[in-house]
Amino acid sequence: MTATTGTPMISMSGVDKHFGDLHVLRDINLEVDAGQVVVVLGPSGSGKSTLCRAINRLEPIDNGTIAIDGEELPAEGKALAALRADVGMVFQSFNLFAHKTILENVMLAPVKVRKANKADAEKKALALLERVGIANQKDKYPAQLSGGQQQRVAIARALAMDPKVMLFDEPTSALDPEMVNEVLDVMTGLAADGMTMVVITHEMGFARRAANRVLFMADGEIVEDASPETFFSAPNSDRAKDFLGKILTH
């Protein structure tokens, strides 16, 4: 979580990605400084999820380079696994390990990847579950929890690795409306603590409240890169005006 001065936490340059004929990422250049909270907005199919997944190479790229904290992403293998351990990721569909209890979900990676000892890992896991408000559910299995609770566990699981960066890929899109806020509250708390975050979301309230910076993507390109105030009050591009017009009138 500590910021190394100078080098950006995430830097992408000249990143290209195709899915067959579809050009999903077009010459993406992006630098995210440590401690920054970047919200990525855009219509579906604009490439924002792919951008997020490319940052820890869950989605390999065709061209360009991506570096985390100054370290370029290596090819598949042990070095990549080590780098991914420093990048927390939260998925739309939670993806908690279905055969493990809540506590085991949070402890597993620290024990297996970081080789932490079990007692320490458990203590830390309990503290994290406390922080996201689900310590009392620690012995249940993921399927026994609500979506909002599962997503908060997923956040705790990512935090247990002491990541330098947290990536959120539409963390609230699969949730019932009344559960969205409990997850956003946890994320807002993280942002306030100085975590570097890249958040793909449709939650405009969260973007206004917690983001330092808003990226607007369309057709695989970053069309706007502005502060939330500027973006929501005076967007530059027609694409962004059109997008905001559609979502803000509802």
């Binding site: 820890n56 869950l58 696994a81 080590a82 780098l83 991914r84 351990a85 420093d86 990048v87 927390g88 990721m89 998925f91 993806n95 908690l96 390990f97 279905a98 597993l108 990676a109 297996k112 990847v113 997923a154 699981r157 990512a158 690795m161």
Partner: peptide, 10 residues
């Protein structure tokens, strides 16, 4: 499930 574990550094 596999994506989540790869993302955690497994």
């Amino acid at each position: 499930q596999a994506e989540a574990s790869r993302a955690l550094g497994f």
